[in-house]
Design a protein around this nucleic acid. Structure first.
Ligand SMILES: NC(=O)c1ccc[n+]([C@@H]2O[C@H](COP(=O)([O-])OP(=O)(O)OC[C@H]3O[C@@H](n4cnc5c(N)ncnc54)[C@H](O)[C@@H]3O)[C@@H](O)[C@H]2O)c1
Ligand SMILES: NC(=O)c1ccc[n+]([C@@H]2O[C@H](COP(=O)([O-])OP(=O)(O)OC[C@H]3O[C@@H](n4cnc5c(N)ncnc54)[C@H](O)[C@@H]3O)[C@@H](O)[C@H]2O)c1
Lengths: 235, 235
DNA sequence: GTCCCTTTGTGAACCGGTGCACAAAGTGAT
DNA sequence: ATCACTTTGTGCACCGGTTCACAAAGGGAC
């Protein structure tokens, strides 16, 4: 069976491109709401905060959807990007760990809009199990496998303490899940074929602190450099 | 003034390296707690989930802190990385927007440990202002400039609705802040010299959905490809 | 002091991604 | 039809980052 595809679509969109498509989609939705029918790569690039050549190259990976001299049809491009990202289907997600963060996520309406639906909340604490949050019952972690199956969950959000995260991940993966969004500050080890994305607040702050320090160092003359390798750090 | 630095430290650590240092630091802290005195690049790399050559190159940017045939001294390396990241000083952060997410962040103890301290909470809603959360009074956004100055805030976490984020960012920057962690799903435009990092849950989920779709597509035979460009999308 | 073993630090090839710059393609006016 | 103008799609040079692979350095045994 020979694979004949429309355009430049042999196999695989660059990872960097995938990571930007949601950005373009968001900008396009804004434009759609404002009633714009078409948009040039230049304008869309500005709205998404990227270089216009990059935007065009990104879009060229999906196919040749623009019209030279005109630009891109907003609605059509929304449809194409949505389809590429898999947002034309409905994704059921489960949140495991309904503490501070898990609750905030459950109550958040922002992603429900775009194809994602919080379908289950799970926790190990009997004091939390049974709570009703955002219209959902918190279920016990023992029910994990059954809940995943019953609700058709395909993406799991991990919001447990770090100490429990690996163990929960193992179980979730054993139950057939291959996409996990991890908020716990640990490096999860998972088998080939399982996608993990992590959100790590503490790392983000540390990166900011690094640059902030550089900025203020520069301000104060850049000296104090001599001091930076103190003698006698015994141990 | 000639800049003589210990080793390979002319100027600037690669951005990719900076982003990994917090990971190494976390792994090292775990090892320190378990009483390990030294660690090889191989072991540390495994703990941090990276390739060992990369780890060695990363560390080499800070200086030559290892001992051939032995490895790295855990405590010394913790000290060096902490210093490089600026974690030997104390960073006051302000959270603007004390809703679902802002509250979760305020109540979170995880980053307080490592040099960061939530020093102020700000909101525009009179119903929220005055609330006491995690030992802090929520202050009115009108006090922004005064609060930043008074508390020595140098990093701001934005947790307002998307619609307010740009406006709040502008104000925060005008007040002298140059490091912002943004949770609102918008592309902020900021002047040169201001560092923005964003955490965007919805984008992370969309990236997972993309890969998940690919996986299940492959499972179901990779066909249905012919269907994927429907005719007649009028408009 | 010599030899063997371990592990670092880095040169060099490689790779994915970026951005410039331009030919090709389309629109609209005349 | 032709021409002037706009904007896409992409070839190409470049760049930061990754990985391999190895020489150099240090430790420990004898
Ligand atoms: N809250 C934040 O702002 C924030 C920010 C960054 C990172 N995090 C991380 O997110 C995670 C959650 O943070 P939090 O503040 O919500 O913590 P939390 O302690 O408030 O909530 C954790 C929840 O997980 C549940 N849990 C524990 N073990 C479990 C298990 N084995 N199975 C199922 N549920 C289990 C607990 O019962 C609790 O309800 C932590 O790893 C934390 O480091 C939180
Ligand atoms: N809650 C989540 O899990 C989650 C997840 C991803 C992204 N986000 C994003 O984080 C942001 C906050 O989400 P949330 O769920 O906490 O929303 P929220 O509506 O619960 O809270 C927003 C808070 O910001 C305050 N606010 C509004 N305008 C303000 C202004 N000009 N100055 C100061 N404060 C102002 C509001 O009074 C409110 O208290 C949103 O942009 C949301 O899209 C939230």
């Amino acid at each position: 069976m020979i694979r004949r595809l429309s355009q430049a679509r042999e196999r695989g969109i660059p990872e960097a491109t995938v990571a930007r498509l949601p950005l373009y989609l968001r900008a396009l939705n804004g434009m759609s709401e404002r009633g714009l029918a078409t948009v040039s790569s230049e304008d869309l690039a500005v709205a998404a905060g990227v270089n216009s050549a990059k935007l065009r190259k990104d879009l060229s990976h999906l196919g040749s959807y623009g019209t030279r001299g005109v630009g891109y049809d907003v609605e059509y491009l929304i449809y194409q990007i949505s389809r590429e990202l898999g947002l034309t289907q409905d994704w059921a997600i489960a949140i495991v760990g309904v503490g501070n963060l898990g609750r905030a996520l459950a109550n958040y309406g922002g992603f429900v809009s775009r194809g994602f639906r919080v379908a289950a909340l799970l926790d190990a604490d009997p004091a939390v199990v049974g709570d009703r949050i955002a219209g959902l019952n918190v279920e016990h972690i023992d029910e994990l496998e059954a809940v995943i199956r019953r609700r058709g969950v395909s993406i799991v959000v991990l919001a447990t303490p770090a100490a429990a995260a690996q163990q929960v991940a193992d179980r979730v993966i054993a139950a057939g899940i291959t996409s996990i969004l991890n908020f716990a500050p640990v490096v999860l080890s998972v088998p080939e074929g399982v996608d993990i994305r992590k959100v790590d607040l503490s790392i983000e702050l540390q990166i900011l602190a690094f640059h902030e320090q550089r900025k203020t160092d520069r301000m104060t003359g850049g000296a104090a450099m001599a001091e930076e390798w103190p003698e006698a750090v015994d141990l």
